[in-house]
Amino acid sequence: MEQLHVEPSSRPGPYPAPALEKGLEIIELLAAAQKPLSTRAIAESLGRSKGEIFRMLFVLVERGYLNRDPATEELTLSNRLFELGMRTPRARQLVEVAAPAMEKLSAKTAQSAHLVVLNEGETVVIANAAGTGDISFTLRLGYRRPAVEATSGRVILAFQDDDMRQRSLNAGPSHGREEDAGLLRAMLDEIATRGFLLAESHDMPGVTDISAPILDRQGRAVASIVIPYLNRRGARTRHEEVLAELLATCRMISSELG
């Protein structure tokens, strides 16, 4: 089995906090592993005994920072740290500005809309608005997938500099890095030129993903909105009309965020 290691800080600092450092080592290890680990694997990777980390694991599970699989007893990171990050003023402002605009967008298009950000090389849905039609396709809050595989993720990556693109790809699951780098760069550049991405869903037959970025003052994407448009038999497709509404909504949100 491949062994993971987290290097402890070489400088203890003027105020050592062994318990805190132990907890941070565990969290950093699981973030790097990107797969469930047993208590034994965690202890071995950190160069500690199971007894040394048992209490810390218990507390982290109780506080909601780790999830424990009841069948295997293996541990993974929860969304707790991400949720805390979303409580920062900048993140709150994004949701507060985008949410009402997305509600209006969904009402106009009769399709659901999802606000998506990047975290550790993955897309995360942080807000959604259900469509007003009799049927709509809605992703749950917290839904994740590798950024390079998601329409919304590719749109965000398209509006980053090369260094940020590469860091996001390196942080994601390894299978997201297997795609030819040249082809991926060309695809992202094309999205940036167009200003949007309209493509068939990777997962759902009959769904067309329509996505556009929310940009900061430097033209970098801080988020994207994706509409999973349901194509129905006998109904006229309105992809271009929905795209126009989406682009207008994203421009308005970008402007309000400043």
Rank of each mutant, 00 (worst) to 15 (best):
Q34G: 04
K35M: 13
P36L: 12
P36C: 12
P36K: 14
L37S: 05
L37C: 10
L37E: 11
S38L: 10
S38W: 01
T39P: 08
R40C: 06
R40V: 14
R40M: 12
R40T: 15
A41H: 06
I42D: 10
A43E: 09
A43S: 14
E44W: 06
E44G: 08
S45C: 05
S45F: 01
L46V: 12
L46H: 05
L46A: 08
L46F: 08
L46K: 09
G47Q: 12
G47F: 01
G47N: 09
R48H: 11
R48E: 14
S49M: 08
S49I: 05
K50Y: 03
K50M: 11
G51K: 08
E52M: 07
I53D: 11
F54W: 10
R55P: 03
R55V: 08
M56Y: 07
L57I: 14
F58E: 15
F58D: 14
V59G: 00
V59K: 05
V59T: 09
V59M: 09
L60G: 11
V61P: 06
E62N: 09
E62L: 09
E62A: 14
R63Q: 12
R63N: 08
G64M: 06
Y65N: 04
L66F: 08
N67R: 11
D69P: 07
P70S: 07
A71G: 02
A71E: 15
T72L: 03
T72G: 06
T72E: 07
T72P: 07
E74T: 13
E74K: 15
L75F: 12
L75V: 07
T76I: 14
T76W: 07
T76G: 07
L77H: 05
L77S: 04
L77A: 03
L77N: 04
S78I: 07
N79I: 08
N79A: 12
N79R: 13
N79L: 15
L81F: 05
L81M: 11
L81H: 01
L81W: 04
L81S: 07
F82C: 00
E83W: 03
L84Y: 09
L84A: 05
G85R: 03
G85Q: 03
G85T: 00
M86V: 00
M86W: 01
R87T: 09
R87Q: 13
R87A: 00
T88D: 12
T88Q: 15
T88H: 12
P89I: 10
P89Y: 10
P89H: 11
R90A: 15
R90K: 15
R90Q: 14
R90Y: 09
A91K: 06
Q93R: 15
L94K: 05
L94E: 04
V95F: 05
V97Y: 00
V97Q: 02
V97E: 04
A98Y: 00
A99V: 06
A99H: 14
A99N: 10
P100K: 00
P100F: 06
P100L: 03
A101E: 13
A101L: 13
A101H: 15
M102F: 02
E103F: 04
E103R: 13
E103M: 12
E103N: 07
K104T: 12
K104M: 13
L105C: 06
S106G: 15
S106F: 05
S106D: 05
A107C: 00
K108C: 02
K108L: 12
K108P: 00
T109Q: 01
A110N: 01
Q111C: 03
Q111H: 04
Q111F: 00
S112T: 02
S112G: 03
A113F: 02
H114Q: 06
H114W: 00
H114D: 02
